[in-house]
């Protein structure tokens, strides 16, 4: 009798674990939360509990409001949580109002700016750009992650797992690969710097976070694999030009915002099946 009960309990546990790991969003939430804990505890970031509550609160509340208006699925709250964590990890501001608005605008843009049932901008990206441009009191600190090797390895590994799960690994591989090649040709072959200069450029937590957790948002990048590879190549080229010619060290975040028309165009020229979170879970 007892053994049947324990077998039943174990099965239930396995099913729970399965259902957690089946949805890539769950894994993403766990990872991003871990990064945030690491930033606050080990890197003594300025972000306070108050700020985190404001960002997460405003993002989830906005999503709830929009669910009420449009009748979207309640499970989309998971995506909103990912957006809020992304904002906490990248965006900085001394003003709680700005941070709250970043979350509010990020989610609202998702519902207001749509083409063929697909939202145009990555919500976190939109929130970041909007608050930097409009309010002038928000910024990104690209150096805030330091270059601790162990952390960067964890970030890469975790990123690969999520991307493998949602089938978008090629986008990051093409992006990072081509950016590395371009930087290699410029920094090492042309300018003649030592290899550790190049490694230092790439051991940036901000760059890896962009590459693994932002540019790969399946909802806002092209649907077909071929289109995504071309898209990643354009993204890498533009990032390279902006950072080397105009000294913009947060280049990928700007490029991903302004690349939107190309995304729409690529979706038209090379159509593919639109990504659905639920599909990937089943």
């Amino acid at each position: 009798m007892q053994s049947t009960e324990s077998i039943y309990q174990t099965r239930e546990k396995t099913n729970l674990l399965k259902s957690i790991f089946n949805d890539a969003r769950h894994i993403q939430i766990i990872y991003l939360s871990l990064f945030l804990i690491y930033g606050v505890s080990s890197l003594s970031w300025d972000i306070t509990v108050e700020k985190i509550v404001v960002v997460v609160g405003s993002t989830l509340l906005t999503q709830l409001l929009w669910i009420g208006i449009t009748g979207a699925k309640l499970s989309s709250l998971k995506s909103a949580l990912i957006t809020s964590l992304g904002l906490c990890l990248i965006l900085q501001s001394g003003s709680l109002l700005t941070l709250g608005l970043a979350g509010f605008l990020a989610i609202s843009a998702k519902f207001l700016l749509r083409v063929k049932g697909k939202h145009l901008f990555n919500p976190a990206n939109f929130g970041i750009i909007a608050s930097i441009v409009l309010f002038q009191d928000a910024w990104i600190s690209p150096g805030q992650w330091g270059s601790d090797t162990l952390f960067l390895l964890c970030l890469t590994l975790m990123g690969c797992i999520v991307l493998h799960k949602i089938g978008r690994l090629e986008t990051t591989v093409v992006f990072l690969g081509s950016l590395f090649l371009m930087e290699y040709l410029r920094t090492i072959v042309y300018q003649g710097w030592e290899m550790d200069v190049l490694w230092h450029k790439f051991s940036s937590g901000t760059l890896l976070l962009f590459a693994f957790f932002m540019i790969t948002d399946p909802m806002t990048i092209p649907n077909s694999k071929k289109a995504r590879m071309i898209w990643a190549l354009i993204l890498a080229g533009a990032t390279f030009l902006l950072s080397t010619r105009m000294q913009i060290y947060t280049a990928p975040i700007w490029v991903i915002f302004f690349i939107t028309p190309i995304t729409v165009l690529l979706d038209k020229v090379l159509p593919g099946v639109k990504f659905e979170w639920n599909k990937s879970t089943n």
């Binding site: 890197l43 003594s44 002038q136 600190s141 690209p142 150096g143 805030q144 992650w145 330091g146 270059s147 230092h200 450029k201 940036s204 060290y249």
Partner: peptide, 14 residues
């Protein structure tokens, strides 16, 4: 004019 200056390729910490 705007505010603090910080390093972009190394961590700036207090």
């Amino acid at each position: 004019k705007e505010g603090r200056v910080e390093c972009t390729n190394y961590r700036t910490t207090k």
